[in-house]
């Protein structure tokens, strides 16, 4: 807290009133920061829900396409068996083409397996970021309770309080669980 200067009673009251007002302003500002950080956390949760929803839908679509592809594949094989050996050359050529398409779709689906894992990576990163925001919020509240941020006009004290809160948040932060920058296959190591 800022020291109250010795002065007349009137001056003294004015100084106390000014400090009280500044104190209230600081508390309000700090509440704004806390609310702002809580909003960020809420938005991160919203992103997580949207991503999870999209991933769930994509996985359902993926499995359905995969099932249809397998049926298609089996059907082409069955028709091929029925057509041969007396089937016309044209029909057999068409069936061969159908089989090539079915194989290609299956290959593409296999490749999609790697990409469809993005949901897990995103969810983990969002949880990590949300945790960082939450820890910072708690540390800022702690700094506020310790009056670190209440020293009206004392910017050094305010800055020191914020820096201390950020450093505490950094110290409490866990290692980033996801370092991947893209959806390329990860490394494999056998012990």
């Amino acid at each position: 807290m800022v020291g109250i200067p010795l002065a007349s009673n009137k001056d003294n009251h004015t100084a106390i009133d000014e400090i009280a007002t500044a104190d209230r302003n600081n508390i309000t500002q700090n509440s704004d920061v806390i609310e702002y950080l809580m909003n960020i956390k809420g938005e991160l949760n919203q992103v997580d829900r949207l991503v999870s929803d999209a991933v769930n839908n994509l996985v359902i679509n993926f499995k359905y396409i995969s099932k249809l592809t397998k049926s298609h594949h089996d059907m082409v094989l069955a028709i091929e068996k029925m057509a041969a050996p007396e089937g016309s050359k044209n029909i057999l050529t068409l069936l061969d083409k159908q089989m090539t398409i079915a194989d290609k779709i299956e290959q593409e689906l296999e490749m999609a397996v790697t990409s469809l894992q993005f949901g897990d990576l995103v969810t983990q990163l969002l949880a990590h970021t949300a945790r960082q925001v939450e820890i910072l919020n708690i540390e800022l509240q702690r700094a506020n309770h310790a009056s670190d941020l209440r020293s009206a006009g004392d910017y050094d004290a305010i800055q020191a309080g914020i820096s201390r809160a950020v450093n505490m948040a950094k110290a409490k932060n866990k290692k980033k669980p996801v370092v991947q920058q893209g959806m390329q296959m990860g490394e494999i190591e056998l012990f």
């Binding site: 894992q117 990576l121 959806m183 494999i188």
Partner: peptide, 9 residues
């Protein structure tokens, strides 16, 4: 062994 996600099937 250790496999880093995403995995290739």
């Amino acid at each position: 062994g250790w496999l880093v996600k995403p995995f290739d099937p």
